[in-house]
Design a protein around this nucleic acid. Structure first.
Lengths: 189, 189
DNA sequence: ACCTGAACACCGTTCAAGT
DNA sequence: ACCTGAACACCGTTCAAGT
């Protein structure tokens, strides 16, 4: 609404450089320490004033979300490869990849947590709509192969990933065990 | 270490009354809004100064833990009744009761979350040792009845309850569905 | 247009004074 | 002994001035 005239018609050169620096620094910091990273720290590490961080990312949640966007894209890309492999094993491969990504990048858990604590069903970026569609396809494909319970929904998978994310982000327990146990509930009876 | 001479040898009358008021108020507030309740608010509602809250509960986590202690006791009590019922259904009944308690009292999720984010395996009060033992007995009993997978551990159950708690506390998804899916992974194959 | 950093609002926690 | 509340440290966010 209050951003440049056109949907991003030629942002100023140093401005977009700043934005990139902030995002890169944020990605690294969030990956390491998750949501406990402070914004002044990000500003310092990026070599800009705090106001500049807020100009590009109006709220902390926006920055966390933006920093995780790449991971979501990568996950979606990987998800597509799960559609072609051994029949009936797509969702299992997908969930393992998500677990490994969550383990390697605390920023992803932070983004999921932020989204969960946000409004019940806030208008999450259309980026996630694409991922949602692919997951739906994987479920359908695995179901057709007789590997998954017939009533499984995308919402079920999201709920489980959220639960997995919360567990991984506390560092407690061993997530591969949790995933293995959880997955039993997704298989056909 | 720095508390009264004996392990609580006669605390002053108004002091213990203050402590009780703080705890009662905290229980109500935490139950309603979980960990987003602020300590000044607790002090105000209890009609005491902030310093008094800190005198009795050195840190916010201590207050959250103390406020949830009753719930843990109630849960342990209920858990014991799960040992006598229909053979093989103890853990299922236990987990449903935990879910209902989590749903009704946000303070319990707050306490679990706090404990999880705390030191990996901090010296949690011996209160939890009792609960842990009962859960172990339930598992053993249900296993003997052939209802649960033989390699199931108390740690598995804790991990799942933590995942369930995190999901319920965000209000996202429907926890009975999650529990049903999760429980499939605990049953014998 | 965009950047900066002082300033504001707020919260957890401490501590010097009181009783 | 215990209570009080001003004070401190700190963090997210805003905004008047600068360029």
């Amino acid at each position: 609404m209050s951003t440049p005239s056109s949907p991003s018609r030629k942002a100023r050169a140093d401005a977009s450089r700043n934005r990139d620096r902030i995002l890169e620094v944020a990605r690294n910091l969030f990956a390491e320490r998750g949501s406990q990273v402070q914004l002044p720290e990000v500003a310092r590490a990026a070599g800009v004033g705090i106001g500049t961080v807020y100009r590009h990312f109006p709220t902390q949640a926006d920055l966390i979300e933006a920093a995780a966007a790449q991971r979501f894209a990568e996950i979606e890309e990987y998800a597509r490869t799960c559609l072609g492999g051994e029949p009936g094993r797509g969702l299992w491969r997908y969930l393992n990849h998500v677990g490994e990504t969550l383990e390697a990048d605390s920023g992803l858990s932070a983004a999921i947590e932020a989204a969960r604590h946000s409004r019940g069903s806030a208008p999450r970026g259309e980026a996630l709509a694409g991922l949602e569609a692919v997951i739906g396809d994987i479920i359908e494909s695995d179901c057709a192969a007789g590997a998954l319970r017939a009533d499984l929904t995308v919402a079920d998978v999201y709920m489980m990933v959220g639960a997995l994310s919360a567990t991984i982000s506390t560092g407690s327990g061993d997530w591969r065990r949790l995933l293995a146990l959880q997955f039993e509930g997704l298989r056909s009876a």
